[in-house]
């Protein structure tokens, strides 16, 4: 089987590509050929010989669909992969639109629909959650600096300022809010989401939906959070209340594909607030594998039409402890990626 995976950017804000590949290699140790699709020549996963067998640069989503399609077609002529697993939020719209044309090349994908994607987007989250009885922080969608002046009337500082695709900053006053707004707008466009700040601990759920059922779901409490807000270690937990909200959300969305739900457990009331729904597996997806649910492999089973039985349990108290590792390589590999856009191992 040949599978292409995007997002090998294992920096301190890691993408899910490397752990997804690791999960697939666990399941198919000998029969898998993996192609890494990169947006930057310095995505660390590309330099590790045991991650992808071959790596190729593809154009940024913002460069346009035609370019992306042409590039993928030409890589496909060489690598003949059967499946693409996109792992980044911002590329999903494009892959959904390209899916029929990729299917014509014999490339399969398993993705949510555009409508599902829109329902869970940061600017629609409050509407979606209110409609389904899910607790969610209030927000204001800011399209200009002017809108930030309403923050003080709507909620109290601090508030979270979020880019429509990525990035978040906690700000304590109007000046910080304006600075954060401009940063998010410049990078991710409008609107910028201003979200009520909920004090409490962070809990995340990593899951897989097949369009009707929840195939698996693993809940995790973050134990160590970096200054960028990324979980650097975490532990699987079992709170039926949390898993029930996750199941309800996935059912309401009729979600197809990997998904991550981010929650805050509010300190006073112990209620779970749904902060964000990410339309892909999280970077910590390998914890789910370690706890007994190989969700990326199950995703591949869904794509290939193999029988898939929903997971019923996972080990509680399993931990992930992330570490960084300085891989030593030669400038020739970097040159190969920047000049030829390709890097093959072995």
């Amino acid at each position: 089987m040949k599978i292409a995976v995007t997002g090998l950017n294992n920096t301190d804000n890691p993408a899910p590509g490397v752990p997804v590949i690791r999960a697939l290699r666990d399941r198919w140790p000998d029969s898998l050929h993996v192609v890494g699709l990169l947006y930057d020549a310095l995505e660390p996963g590309a330099y590790l010989a045991d991650v992808a067998d071959a790596n190729y640069m593809i154009p940024y989503p913002s460069a346009g669909l035609e370019q992306l399609f042409t590039r993928i077609s030409s890589i496909h002529e060489v690598e003949k992969f059967d499946i693409i697993i996109p792992t980044l939020d911002s590329e999903l719209n494009g892959f959904i639109k390209l899916a029929p044309r990729l299917a014509a090349l014999g490339i399969k994908l398993f993705l949510p629909t555009e409508d599902q994607l829109r329902l869970r987007s940061k600017d629609k989250l409050v509407d979606f959650c209110s409609a389904h009885g899910i607790i969610v922080p209030r927000n204001v969608l800011a399209t200009s600096v002017q809108d930030l002046y309403t923050i003080a009337q709507e909620f109290e500082y601090p508030v979270a300022i979020k880019g429509i695709f990525y990035d978040a900053a906690i700000v304590n006053n109007l000046d910080e809010a304006i600075a954060a707004f401009r940063r998010m707008q410049a990078k991710w466009g409008l609107p910028v989401v201003v979200q009520e700040f909920i004090a409490g601990d962070e809990y995340n759920v990593c899951a897989l939906g097949d369009g009707a059922r929840t195939i698996g779901a693993v809940a995790m409490k973050k134990l160590y959070v970096t200054d960028k807000g990324k979980g650097w270690s975490g532990i699987t937990i079992n709170d039926p209340a949390l898993l029930e909200i996750a199941q309800k959300t996935i059912a309401a969305l009729q979600w197809r594909g990997g998904i991550e739900l981010e929650f805050i457990r509010e300190r006073e009331t112990n209620s779970y607030y749904l902060l964000e729904i990410n339309p892909r597996f999280p970077a910590w997806v390998y914890l789910a594998v370690g706890a007994g649910q190989n969700l990326p492999a199950a995703l591949v089973d869904l794509i290939t039409g193999a029988a898939v039985t929903p997971f019923e349990k996972y080990s509680v108290g399993k931990m992930f402890v992330r570490y960084s590792w300085d891989h030593i390589t030669d400038i020739a590999q970097f040159e190969s990626l920047t000049v030829h856009g390709a890097l093959r191992h072995g």
């Binding site: 947006y39 930057d40 020549a41 310095l42 190729y56 640069m57 593809i58 154009p59 940024y60 460069a63 346009g64 035609e66 370019q67 992306l68 042409t70 590039r71 030409s74 920047t338 856009g341």
Partner: peptide, 15 residues
């Protein structure tokens, strides 16, 4: 000059 985040000229063939 190669700068982080601006090192991707691939896939520009169609444009």
């Amino acid at each position: 000059k190669q700068q982080s985040g601006l090192m991707n000229k691939f896939g520009s063939a169609t444009s």
